[in-house]
């Protein structure tokens, strides 16, 4: 009974995942990650700048104590300016308002060069060190080469063992809801023989339906002949 319920519910949710808001969602649980054999990495370092702290691991960011998105790149630095702060990865620059709201994510075409190797701040604004040189911008719209060298570069700070453990728990890798539902529905969640078990249940259900129909129809057919 439970198995049929799982099949029915997972099937329904799979068909209406978008409407139910499950698409793009992830489930984060240590036991689930271990069950799926996903290696969880503990963060080794944090980026700190003024009022903001960023710790990243397993494609997730813990930004000022809040989880920020999924499948995010490993940051290379964090800087704070007057009323904004910025996080750089090798391929993107994220500008945030002071309250943590994303102003804009800049990717390849909007960056002065790639990969971004470091982010810093100067009197002129944001500074990026890229493979093509060092560039600065006040608004992250237009970039110019930086000649003066008084830049405060963002550098990571090592985390203690206790901090790593605490952050690792917060940054547990996720399994997509879509994947989880598919595995539950197909039986793969239970391992190699799960799909075989689901197949047997399907055959059993078919047999029950056919024998039920037989038991219902045959007496009526006999009665009709007499």
């Amino acid at each position: 009974m439970l198995f049929f319920l799982i099949l029915a519910v997972t099937g329904l949710i799979l068909n209406h995942g978008a409407w139910l808001g499950f698409d793009g969602r992830y489930v984060h649980a240590g036991w689930l990650a271990r069950w799926y054999g996903i290696q969880s990495e503990a963060p080794r370092e944090a980026f700190r700048s003024g009022h903001h702290v960023l710790v990243a691991a397993n494609g997730r960011w813990l930004l000022d104590g809040k989880i920020s998105g999924e499948r995010l790149p490993q940051p290379v630095g964090l800087i704070e300016l007057a009323d904004i702060f910025a996080v750089a990865s090798e391929t993107a620059l994220y500008l945030f308002r002071d309250d943590g709201e994303l102003i804009e994510k800049l990717e390849r075409g909007a960056l002065p060069g790639a990969p971004v190797q470091a982010i810093g701040s100067s009197a002129r604004g944001i500074v990026l060190r890229t493979a093509s040189g060092i560039f600065t911008s006040a608004d992250a719209l237009s970039w110019r080469p930086l000649t003066q060298r008084s830049v405060l570069w963002s550098a990571p700070a090592e985390l203690s063992v206790a901090q790593r453990q605490a952050y690792e728990e917060a940054l547990t890798p996720g399994v997509s809801v879509q994947q989880l539902l598919l595995d539950l529905h197909s039986g793969r969640f239970a391992g190699r023989y799960g799909p075989v078990f689901v197949d047997l249940l399907a055959l059993l259900l078919a047999a029950v339906s056919l024998t039920g129909a037989w038991l219902f129809l045959v007496p009526r057919l006999h009665r009709g002949r007499h």
């Binding site: 054999g37 990865s89 993107a92």
Partner: peptide
């Protein structure tokens, strides 16, 4: 006959690669 562990480990590798750009 894919085990979910194996299939998802592969998926996560792909996701990791995507995250890394």
């Amino acid at each position: 006959n894919w085990r979910p562990r194996r299939s998802l480990a592969l998926l996560m590798l792909a996701l990791g690669a995507a995250a890394a750009g």
